[in-house]
Each structure stands twice: as structure tokens, then as C-alpha cells.
């Protein structure tokens, strides 16, 4: 089942009187259940591509369909709903809400979905079990290690059981041990819940876990390969 379809997509930014083209003629398809990495050097367009897939930004030309929704034609409210219901985000810098506890951070996406308190409690407990943080529910982000913060971010991304998780350099701030732990957690989620993961990364450790690797160079797809028998 095709989750995302990208056809002849360009993304440009105005710079002075000219423009800078960050993505050029991208043609890609992502199936449900993929564990895909978009790799490439800094400035190759990885984050821009993730932003467009996540409907946080829109392409300049071409067509991008996410779960049957043409990104460019969505209103602000519709793209918010798409993100709220179907997409989870994981960031390089975790971006947890510092004044809230682990439990409250994970609970927040469910409040936006209007779930009842009972349903929220169960879903948050399940998500924290998945990432192995049930003993930290009352802790604040400042009391956690980097690896634990990223696990909270994963729990927050998957708590609503989204079809798609977009992770922007999720291991960039982590040491090797924590990186492997995080990647194993995400791999397990991918295999057991069938959640589609798309990473932007240039971390070699991540690449070893990928089923598919898309290489971007100067905004173009330089290579798209299935690896690890994915």
C-alpha cells in the first residue's frame, strides 16, 4: 500500500532577487511499513523533504500525496489534522516541553485528538512501556539523560499510533549505546505495529538498521536502494 507519492517535485526559496532550489525533480514512493533513511550531507535537502512530507511546508512545483492528501491543496487546518491524526515527529534536539512531566509530554498529542482521560492513560502507559520509561513518568525532561529524552520523544510520536513517523536526525545528539537503543526501539515498533519510519540522517549507525536508503545530493535523489533485505 502506497503511503506517500512524490512526483517531479521541486522546492525553491527566494534569495534576494534570485532563488535557491533545495529539492530538484524528486520522484519517490513510500510503502506502508517502510523503515527508510534519507541520507546525504548537510544542505542536501533532507529536512526540507521531511517537512514537505509532514505537511509543514509545501513544494514549489510537482505533486506530493501523503495518505491520499495532496499536500499543496490542504488548508492550514487540514494539514494540522493530517499531522495530528497520522504523523508523528521525532527531532534531533528532542524538543520536549520542559515544564511538563514525561507523562504529560506523551499525553499532549492525545489531548489534541480529544481522547478521554481513561483512553489517554492507557495509551500513554503503553507508549512508555514500549520505550521502557514507565519508571520515569513523573520526571521532567531536565532530569533525564539525552537517550531518555529521545525515548520520551519517540513515545510522544507513537502514542497516537500514527501511520507515519518522521525522524529528523534522531541520533545526532546521542552516544553510540543510546543510538543503538533508540534504533532498536524504533525497529521493534516498525515490525510489531507496522508503523512507517522515514529518517533523515547522515549517521552510519542508523544506516545499518535501514531497510531502504535514499541518498540526496544537492537536492536530487542520487541513489535509492533496498538494503538489509527490507
Amino acid at each position: 500500500m502506497v503511503l506517500i507519492k512524490i512526483n517531479e517535485m521541486f522546492k525553491s526559496y527566494p534569495i534576494g532577487k534570485g532563488k535557491f532550489t533545495a529539492l530538484k525533480n524528486i520522484d519517490l514512493k513510500f510503502e506502508k511499513g517502510e523503515f527508510t533513511g534519507i541520507v546525504g550531507p548537510s544542505g542536501s535537502g533532507k529536512t526540507t523533504l521531511l517537512n514537505i512530507i509532514g505537511s509543514l511546508d509545501v513544494q514549489t512545483e510537482g505533486k506530493v500525496e501523503v495518505m491520499g492528501n495532496e499536500v499543496k491543496s490542504l488548508s492550514a487546518k487540514q494539514s494540522s489534522r493530517l499531522r495530528s491524526e497520522h504523523i508523528g515527529f521525532i527531532f534531533q534536539t528532542y524538543n520536549l516541553l520542559p515544564v511538563y512531566t514525561v507523562y504529560e509530554n506523551v499525553e499532549f498529542p492525545l489531548i489534541l485528538l480529544g481522547m478521554s482521560a481513561v483512553e489517554r492513560k492507557k495509551a500513554v502507559s503503553d507508549a512508555l512501556k514500549w520505550v521502557g520509561l514507565t519508571d520515569k513518568i513523573k520526571s521532567r525532561p531536565a532530569q533525564l539523560s539525552g537517550g531518555e529524552c529521545q525515548r520520551v520523544a519517540i513515545a510522544r510520536a507513537i502514542v497516537k499510533k500514527p501511520s507515519l513517523v518522521l525522524a529528523d536526525e534522531p541520533t545526532a545528539n546521542l552516544d553510540a549505546e543510546n543510538s543503538h537503543h533508540i534504533l532498536k526501539t524504533m525497529k521493534k515498533l516498525n515490525e510489531e505495529l507496522g508503523t512507517t519510519f522515514i529518517f533523515s540522517t547522515h549517521d552510519a549507525k542508523v544506516i545499518s538498521y535501514l531497510k531502504r536508503k535514499i541518498t540526496l545530493v544537492d537536492g536530487k535523489v542520487a541513489n535509492d536502494e533496498i538494503i538489509n533485505g527490507g
Partner: peptide, 16 residues
Amino acid sequence: YGEIGVRLAIGESKGH
């Protein structure tokens, strides 16, 4: 801004 960016990414609308 950080918090607002996260909330947008999570799916909260600007209006909300």
C-alpha cells in the same frame, strides 16, 4: 518558539 514549533508539528493548528 520551540514549544510552539513542537505543538505545530504534533498537529495543533495555529488558531488553536
